[in-house]
Design a binder for these strands. Structure first.
Lengths: 211, 211
DNA sequence: CTATGTGAAAAAGTTCACAGCG
DNA sequence: CGCTGTGAACTTTTTCACATAG
């Protein structure tokens, strides 16, 4: 019912509801129950109801939640209505993959700039984006008013890049470099160390063997 | 002190300790304190100590934790000593990026197979890996005894791929397709919807604007 | 009779504070 | 002393159960 201070785990689940809801909208369904929504998102139904408590939408007993309204409310809540442009710093394989990742468009996100420090990469056009020199990043940001950036540079360069992003007014950083970034508290950093994903698989698989 | 049932958040932090510890080992340091380790991993020191409770290593008052022993224990705990080969299904940009991601090698992980259903991709060699047809995957798995797989195919193909992986004896799946997979309970699935990352940034950035 | 919304209970995880060991 | 290890307090999140609304 309120929009502030949503629990982190809830926040991670909201996009999954949104995804499932869109399929229902496409199918022309007007209401969806928490149990149905949960089944599609892989989440328990009472968790769904609890999560939706944080959204400005109320369900109807015997019917469920209004699909269209819920989508609109989730989009608003997740900030998917405002400025959604982001840049990628680091035109390696991962940076390139992310800069063209089709899944982002589904949420209205657009990668509008791709930067690299390698002169051999700068100037080339990758998937419709021209690779720009990192040196020009600050100037670029000062013109464009972009709030989100993705870092896919090597660990040793990440802090330097982050410093420039901050100077350029970036308020949210998705950091794929395996290093802890030092930023002021008003800037949100989401760390995504891909190796942790494999390590996690590895742990579970090895426990599996032990049994 | 025990190795079973480690809390999920702890498990996600262990690889970060491992990363920091290796830097210390390289620097020739024999002991490290929880405060130092925490600072490098970006984690509070009491959290570090609590987490290390789950590891078969004990620190020494006034000195800290033995770096070498701790590394060995973490590696063992995370299953980084056994079979660490994995395959990638889906040779799109993301699949290719992951199949060559240098960060995996740091943990001893190796991507040994790359599969795709597109005949136009099959047969080409990408970063030393030959793209193999998905049709041959089951046979491949039955020979190789691989336990981990990464799915980067489109959402609509993901369940079909997962079914084949299960049949091939895969016990851990890292799923980048934005869909909930249906698998038996003894198979571990880690879902990684990249759009959630951007949505999360977006939420925090938009709250930032509101203030 | 079905499905929401929510207090209350339970579980999980974090933080603290400090006893105790080298 | 310095730094670990951990019980206990606290906080957050999940789970449950059920009154309530259409």
């Amino acid at each position: 019912m309120y929009a502030r201070g949503i629990p982190r785990p809830t926040l991670e689940r909201l996009p999954r509801y949104l995804r499932a809801l869109r399929r229902h909208e496409d199918a022309g369904e007007v209401f969806i129950s928490s149990s149905r929504l949960g089944a599609e998102a892989g989440i328990e139904e009472f968790q769904v109801r609890k999560d939706l408590t944080h959204v400005e939408v109320t369900g109807r007993p015997s019917k469920g939640y209004p699909v269209g309204d819920l989508i609109a409310a989730l989009r608003k809540l997740l900030g998917l209505t405002g400025q959604r442009d982001a840049i990628v710093v680091g035109a390696g394989r991962l940076g390139v993959a992310l800069s063209q990742y089709p899944g982002f468009a589904n949420y209205g996100f657009k990668i509008v700039g791709l930067f690299d420090s390698d002169p051999g990469k700068v100037g080339s056009v990758i998937g419709g984006l021209r690779v720009m020199p990192v040196d020009s990043m600050l100037e670029y940001l000062s013109h464009e008013g972009i709030a989100m950036a993705i870092i896919t540079v090597p660990a040793e360069d990440a802090q330097g890049v982050a410093d420039q992003l901050l100077e350029g007014g970036i308020k949210g950083i998705w950091n794929f470099a395996p290093v802890a970034l030092d930023v002021p508290p008003d800037v949100y950093v989401r760390n995504e160390d891909l190796a942790i994903g494999l390590a996690s698989l590895s742990y579970h698989v090895s426990r599996h063997r032990d049994r």
